[in-house]
Design a protein around this nucleic acid. Structure first.
Length: 262
DNA sequence: AGATGTTTATATCCCG
DNA sequence: CGGGATATAAACATCT
């Protein structure tokens, strides 16, 4: 091919940190979130250097995902079964490469304890809900005669009827514990679902525009330039991915919880 | 069992 | 050069 678009740097180590490589992979995906295996694939597809010694660098990469607050683990929605969770970028970490170096950031992105607790609590609540939903699905499998009629889910009413009357909020009461005092502009599920304060239109379903199918070779410049746009799209993407139409996130006085759409 | 995450420890590297 | 960010190693848990 006249112009190599997928591979680069040959066998040389690319001048990117694992954090940068992972951010590129996540950012280049249509939904701005990827499972671990896809992050691996993004890197090995483009950088031949990482086709060897996979155990070593993949261990490092996993360490980075867990260790750095700039990466957020989003639980899978139950209609997308698979291995592992999705990984995305924390919107407040967009400027972490602002010094222009993809090798070393000026400072590490760290969430404050309150923000981190709040985010973790809400993500855990979502994961807990998904687990309970799947468990219920397993205990009441679809009729063996037709596996493909009427969608993937049992109806919401079916689900609700299986719950004891006093547990109509969520299966896991731990998930309902009051979340820590909410910081303004937090990256929380409910913050994401908060309609744009400036627009008061009655819930126009936020449509995620089909993005470029591919980002040939991510570079620093486009990364910075698109941060703003990415932010909006990430919100839309999370709204689509985390909260399928089956349920809705609701705010009551002190507790936040999921309710099934009826 | 193997993939995925989490955590701790230590070494190495880069930016100011 | 020094301190902080990053890389590597490794033990261990969890989930499919």
């Amino acid at each position: 091919m006249p112009r190599p678009t997928r591979e680069s740097y040959g066998d040389q180590k690319p001048p990117f940190s694992y954090i940068a490589l992972t951010a590129m992979a996540i950012w280049s995906s249509p939904e701005r979130m990827l499972p671990l295996s896809e992050i691996y694939r993004f890197i090995t597809d483009r950088f031949p250097y990482y086709r060897r010694n996979t155990q070593r660098w993949q261990n490092s990469l996993r360490h980075n995902l867990s260790f750095n607050d700039c990466f957020v683990k989003v639980p899978r929605r139950p209609d997308r079964p698979g291995k592992g969770a999705y990984w995305t970028l924390h919107p407040q970490a967009f400027d972490m490469f602002e010094n222009g170096s993809l090798l070393r950031r000026r400072k590490r992105f760290k969430l404050h304890k309150g923000e981190k607790d709040s985010l973790n609590a809400e993500l855990a609540a979502l994961a807990s809900f998904n687990r309970a939903f799947l468990a219920r699905q397993a205990s009441a499998p679809p009729t063996p005669t037709n596996a493909s009629s009427g969608g993937l889910y049992p109806s919401a009413s079916t689900y609700m009827s299986r719950l004891s009357p006093e547990s109509t909020e969520a299966p896991d009461t731990a998930a309902l514990l009051p979340v820590a005092p909410r910081p303004r502009r937090a990256f929380t599920i409910d913050a994401l679902l908060e309609p744009d304060p400036r627009r008061s239109s009655p819930s126009p379903p936020l449509q995620l525009p089909p993005l470029q199918p591919h980002c040939p070779l991510p570079l620093p410049a486009p990364y910075l330039l698109a941060a703003q746009r990415y932010h909006a799209e990430l919100l839309a993407g999370l709204q689509q991915s985390c909260l399928p139409p089956l349920w809705t996130w609701r705010e009551s006085n002190q507790f936040s919880h999921y309710t099934l759409n009826s």
